[in-house]
Design a protein around this nucleic acid. Structure first.
Lengths: 189, 189
DNA sequence: CGCGGGTGAGAACGATCGTTCTCACGATGG
DNA sequence: CCATCGTGAGAACGATCGTTCTCACCCGCG
């Protein structure tokens, strides 16, 4: 029935478990069981748990940013609408079942101090997101500093929504973003 | 020489280790060694690691909020200056050696899904911080929604400063906060 | 003096983890 | 038909973890 290639099945299982419970809380045997494969096959594709963690973060980064970019692009309209669509997208993400905050922030807190690759993955993910915002902000015609501020809002919304279990943080952040963007545009004249 | 009471020594050791490396990455024996006590004494004060983790989070929450409140109170001046002093204080915290983000967010990511007490501690910490901000915002005369927005900025600054190792996030958040507060006052004006 | 209770120091225990190995089996090629 | 190789299934291994136990020792009280 499931003809998905083994690597994908392992990554799917790892992502669900690592994200949902934390990396250290999940044993390799749980990943094996959830993937429906044998231990041998798992280690054949990922020689160590560290490799699996890195692959999990890499794939999640790519998917997350692609999903955001797609949503924003389809939001179409004026650059300003695209910018604010970022916060709509966050709100949808927050409302998904099993949402538990940013996988990179969570991994960073758990392993960042001891596993440089995890810290680097988190930094990379946040840099890419900041660059994405910066491009949108530039299209709007606001100064780069505004992009940094919007990134802080988005970051805070992710964490707040996770801890409080309240997707409404996205709307709060979006409202603040609108004020900041308009203020920056007005100041620039 | 060290006549500090054992409980404090254990909590000091636990805080440094748990915060610096993550809770799961630190074994009870490391806490024992860092506290300079025996295993028996450690378990005498904290019957399980979970108890120690909860005590660590409780004490850190109290200290963190007391430090913030003290700084803001001493900043004196107009309510608006007190509000912005919050971000000064964050900047000083970010610049401290060993800063590694919010202990509660880190613990939440690591254990929140499996340990309800940790999730509750994180929620409580954030609620108290939000309430603190709300009081300052009310004193300024801005609407409550502004406090929520400032909380998102602060939250985002903490995470961003941690992941990028850049204390400048506090200044960025402070600048955004000033804009939001002034805009809210002008709108209410 | 003797003895009971608490202590220090660390070994021991059982569970769990990441990783590797065993071994019977099934497909493949000569 | 037989030798070979890779596989599935899971046991095994060594390390580490949280927690408890052992035991020699020291204290104050009879």
């Amino acid at each position: 029935m499931e003809q998905v290639d083994p690597r994908t099945r392992i990554l799917d299982a790892a992502e669900e478990l690592f994200y949902g419970q934390g990396v250290q809380a999940v044993g390799m045997d749980a990943v094996r069981a959830a993937s429906g494969l044998t231990m041998r096959r798992v280690y054949q594709h990922f020689p160590s748990k560290g490799d699996l963690v890195e692959a999990y973060l890499r794939r999640r980064d790519a998917r997350w940013r692609a999903g955001l970019a797609l949503y924003v692009a389809q939001a179409g309209g004026a650059p300003r609408d695209q910018l604010l669509a970022v916060f709509d997208w966050l709100g949808r993400w927050f409302a998904e079942p099993g949402f538990r905050g940013c996988a990179f922030v969570n991994s960073f807190g758990e392993l960042g101090a001891t596993t440089p690759a995890v810290a680097a993955a988190a930094r990379h993910h946040k840099e890419e997101f900041a660059a994405f915002l910066a491009a949108l902000v530039e299209a709007v015609g606001a100064p780069p500093g505004t992009a940094v501020q919007l990134a802080l809002l988005a970051e805070g919304a992710i964490t707040t929504a996770a801890v409080h279990g309240d997707p409404g943080a996205a709307a709060d952040a979006g409202a603040a973003a609108r004020v900041l963007v308009d203020a920056a545009l007005a100041a620039r004249g």
